[in-house]
Amino acid sequence: MTRSTRRAETTRESRRLLLEAATALFAERGYRRTTFEDIAARSGVSRGSIPWHFGSKEGLLAAVVDDIVVHLAAVAGSLDPGTVDQVLDTLTAFTRAPSTGLFAKLMVEADDPESPLRETYAGLHDALRVQVRAWVARLPLPEGVAAEELGTVLLGAVIGIHQQWRVAPGAVDLDRTYATFAALLRSAGITAPAD
Rank of each mutant, 00 (worst) to 15 (best):
T2N: 14
S4F: 06
R6V: 07
T10H: 13
T10Q: 15
E13W: 00
S14I: 00
S14M: 09
L17W: 04
L18K: 06
T23P: 02
A24K: 08
A24P: 02
T34R: 07
T34M: 09
F36K: 01
A41W: 03
A41E: 15
G44E: 03
G44D: 06
S49M: 15
I50P: 03
S56K: 12
K57R: 15
E58S: 13
G59S: 00
G59P: 03
L61I: 05
A62H: 02
A63G: 00
V69K: 05
V70C: 05
V75W: 01
G77K: 12
G82P: 08
V84S: 14
Q86D: 14
L88P: 01
D89M: 06
A93W: 06
A93L: 14
F94W: 12
T95V: 15
A97V: 09
S99D: 13
S99K: 11
G101P: 02
K105F: 04
K105R: 15
P116N: 12
P116I: 14
L117W: 11
Y121V: 03
Q131I: 10
A134V: 02
P140E: 13
P142T: 10
P142S: 09
P142L: 09
E148L: 09
E149Y: 06
L150Y: 03
L150P: 01
V153F: 13
V158G: 03
I159T: 07
G160M: 06
Q164W: 04
R166S: 02
A168C: 09
G170L: 04
L174N: 14
D175E: 15
D175H: 12
T177N: 08
Y178P: 05
T180S: 15
A183P: 02
T191M: 06
A194R: 07
D195I: 01
